[in-house]
Design a protein around this nucleic acid. Structure first.
Lengths: 235, 235
DNA sequence: GCTCGTAGTTTTGTATACAATGTGTACGCA
DNA sequence: TGCGTACACATTGTATACAAAACTACGAGC
């Protein structure tokens, strides 16, 4: 069991809280309060913030402290525009270049994902999903595209959390479908079938996008209030 | 005139030296010597290193200091594989989304590039070229692809420096051609002709790749040493 | 003779005190 | 009353001293 230093715990926990939108996009981060919250002095805490800034999780403002990386409308637009390109290319490279130990990591991430869904734990599920796709990024052995992927995954995970609502039956079906796609991707990556993985990845993206869109643009409220009244007891 | 703090100067200068391969890939960076070299204490210097690490210019090794980001064979292979994809997509977005002030920045970078070539200053030329493509990255308004682009440009600039040899006449022709392509790209971006910019960018990439390849795989030495002797005075 | 262990040195990591910068508020003046 | 300035407070940035970890070299044991 690797014993984590206070600094490592701080880094992981802040990362976790940002991805879970426990710390909201744009939120100011106070050095002193975070420092004694994690039981370290400001010096190493500032290094943690610099590191998080390097990964794109926070942004530093000179003489004005750090804040959680914001997510405005423009960001989201760009996200939807860019994700399929990067995901597809990463997936293709992953199929070609994956090592067997990375394949084990991927299967472990998928196990965690399944466990999360079974436990109805949206946070754990989202985090495992993040890990799953991050491992595919590692498989691609491409530092350039991985830099883009890492930033995409940050916003992808945060968007999922933002729009998540306690599992409706329809939602649950989609999650199961996503899990099946994960399994298919694992098989294809293991068999190194690059074209197939690319295709599966794009299907997976479409599912994810539909799921996000469903919350951004929900079904409109019924215009006819009277008829709604009649249906009240039909639920 | 913006007065630079010692810290900003340190950041810029280290960046500069890394891009110019004055600091070679993989070189160890000693905190204390760098600290008094730039006249600041270790605390802010470490922050500078963290920032450079975030940009991908250096890599940090826990309890074992920092070193300049290495460039091994695998990196170069990946670079050539990935560059056209990112450059082309960035260029297309830049044409669509550029602002007029960014267009001014781009023209300024091209002026600097031209000045560098005229002065036969390979360092200044490479840096201006870096800036030129970085501005196109800014125009794309896409933080995800920009992250990939930034890392590509680091290695692109370093490769150019590594393989640069004092301008042969043939080499000079290629630089002029590159400059012309820059001008064409500026016009196309100004006119927001996305398809044209994408095409020009890929042509520009081909030129750059040919130039790099020329040095990686130069013409073989003449096998027939005797006949070479006869030609000695013909040069 | 080689390996392992250990002491000393060098280098990195952390805490704290202090300086500088930014921010808010209250007061004076028009 | 409105605006500007100045002062006080809060927060960030820097330096230095100290602690911990890694590297080196030397010596003992097998």
């Amino acid at each position: 069991m690797p014993k984590l230093s206070a600094k490592e715990h701080c880094l992981n926990d802040l990362r976790h809280r940002i991805l879970m939108v426990d710390l909201e996009p744009g939120a100011d981060l106070d050095e002193v309060s975070l420092a004694d919250q994690y039981g370290l002095s400001r010096t190493p805490l500032r290094e943690v913030l610099q590191r998080l800034a390097g990964k794109g999780l926070v942004v530093l403002q000179a003489n004005r402290g750090a804040k959680v990386a914001p997510m405005d409308l423009a960001t989201m637009r760009t996200f939807f525009q860019t994700a399929p390109l990067v995901y597809a290319n990463i997936a293709r490279l992953a199929a070609e270049l994956r090592t067997s130990s990375q394949l084990d990591d991927l299967k472990a991430a998928q196990s965690a994902f399944l466990a999360g869904t079974r436990a109805r734990d949206p946070g754990a599920t989202a985090l495992a999903n993040h890990r799953f796709h991050a491992v595919i990024g590692e498989m691609a052995h491409n530092p350039y595209l991985s830099a883009a992927l890492a930033r995409l995954l940050i916003d992808h995970t945060r968007l999922s959390q933002t729009f998540y609502r306690p599992a409706s039956p329809a939602e649950q079906v989609l999650v199961v479908k996503a899990s099946d796609q994960h399994d298919a991707m694992i098989s294809a990556i293991e068999a190194q079938e690059a074209a197939l993985v690319t295709d599966l990845t794009l299907q997976h993206w479409d599912l994810s996008r539909d799921r996000l869109e469903r919350f951004v643009r929900p079904d409109p409220l019924p215009v006819d209030v009277i008829s709604l009244k009649d249906k009240r007891h039909a639920v």
